[in-house]
Amino acid sequence: MEARDALEMARGIGADKPPRSLRSSSPRYGEKVIKYVLVACAVLSVLTTTAIVVSLLVPTIGFFEQVSFGDFFSTESWAPNLEPPSFGVFNIIVGTLSTTLWGLLVAIPVGFLSAIYLSEYASKRVRKVVKPILEVLAGIPTVAFGVFAVTFLSPLVGDAVPGFIKTPPFAAGIAGLAIGLMIVPIISSISDDAMRAVPGGLREGAYALGAGKFTVSTRVVVPAAISGIVASIVLATSRALGETMIVLLAAGKSPNLTLDPGASVQTMTAFIGTTATGDIATGTISYDTIFAVGVVLFVMTLVMNMISIRLVRKFREVYE
């Protein structure tokens, strides 16, 4: 009885076929409006870039009307707010390079080896604990690293190696150490993803030839994931170059032309961060200097980002 009812009902479905018109039943203006709204959202990102470029370039042009290229890149002293001012940007570029270098010296081995451990050695259980911890720690604000550097790392190193820090508590190496800790999760997380994306077949092939875990990790997995690993390092470098709060707190304000980890240096970001606080007047040479330095920093990080994007894309093409 029920089965026949069901059959009857099923018959009913075919019975009231809609008319066979293939034209739109409604103009669907909503669909089009939504699409344009979404396009507008996406275009906003392009406008942001344009705004950044314009807001950097206009005052920079003003800056170079007063200061020559030669003075900017070859003077050996940086004192834009003194009388008479000097604009040797090279000093603060080296300051930035110094903190970045010391940071990378810490972060590359630690991040890279952690990634190998997570991807090749760690058991599922360990991975499940360590990886989220590292990711959560990536969310620690940089001002916290800065406070940590100046209140803990600096006295610690100062006591351990007396005389190392020339002008306590400020030192490029201390800021670098804190920057290094900050960017470890970037390197380990992206490198780990890259290594885990290496197909298992490659590993099995090497194991089948009698290779051990060490050989497989270093000779098979790392070379196969190299572009992803390099991308993570490049990205971390870009982050280190642009880091502001740590260097403001721990690297000091002296634009010394040195790579000595014990010396106080001023970075480009620290210069911008100290000079632009307070109600700085538009149109003055100090105001324009911020933007000229900003252009240098922007170009440096942009190059890094482009390299990293290209490497990641290359890596994705190979394995995805």
Binding site: S21, L22, R23, S25
Partner: peptide, 20 residues
């Protein structure tokens, strides 16, 4: 042709096609 109408004709709405 679907019942004599070209499915790729200019007036045809793919959404309506998929309804049928």
């Amino acid at each position: 042709l679907y019942h004599g109408t070209d499915l790729y004709g200019p007036e045809v709405d793919p959404v309506e096609v998929r309804k049928l």
